[in-house]
């Protein structure tokens, strides 16, 4: 009985992981500006990766394959966030200001306590 449950559970995880990957990719395609696309990219990076790798781990069972998969999952988990942050900070510093900051800095410079972004 147990293998059937594990099978079903892993299939569910793999399907939802694939769905999240598609959602993230389509979101990255349709969002208006760079900053919204950052959010969409992190959707497929986090949920898609974790669900797919967890589903594959269940499929592989307690073997070396699961260890490799967990190492890949851990690494993707760490570098996904780091590279997205690096991209965002590089874009911000090079002058690509998010629309929200443009409106705020445009209206009242004096009351704005947070210092202006960019060089």
């Amino acid at each position: 009985m147990l293998p059937v449950i594990i099978d079903i559970l892993s299939w569910i995880m793999i399907l939802t992981g694939g769905a999240f990957t598609i959602i993230g990719a389509v979101g990255q395609l349709r969002f208006p500006n760079f900053w919204a696309r950052l959010h969409a990219a992190s959707v497929s990076d986090s949920a898609g990766v974790i669900l797919l790798i967890a589903g594959m781990c269940l499929q592989a069972g307690p073997t070396l394959i699961t260890v490799k998969l967990l190492v890949i999952g851990l690494f993707l988990f760490v570098t996904g966030a780091t590279s997205t942050h690096a991209t965002a900070s590089a874009a911000l510093v090079s002058g690509l200001t998010p629309p929200v900051l443009k409106q705020k800095s445009g209206e009242d410079n004096s009351a704005d306590k947070s210092e202006k972004p960019g060089s």
């Binding site: 993230g24 696309r37 990219a41 890949i72």
Partner: peptide
């Protein structure tokens, strides 16, 4: 930076695709 973001996401999908 859109392109860098897209290529990074593409790389992650490739990793998963190789696993699958």
């Amino acid at each position: 930076y859109d392109r860098v973001l897209a290529s990074n996401a593409f790389g992650t999908q490739t990793v998963l695709f190789i696993g699958v």
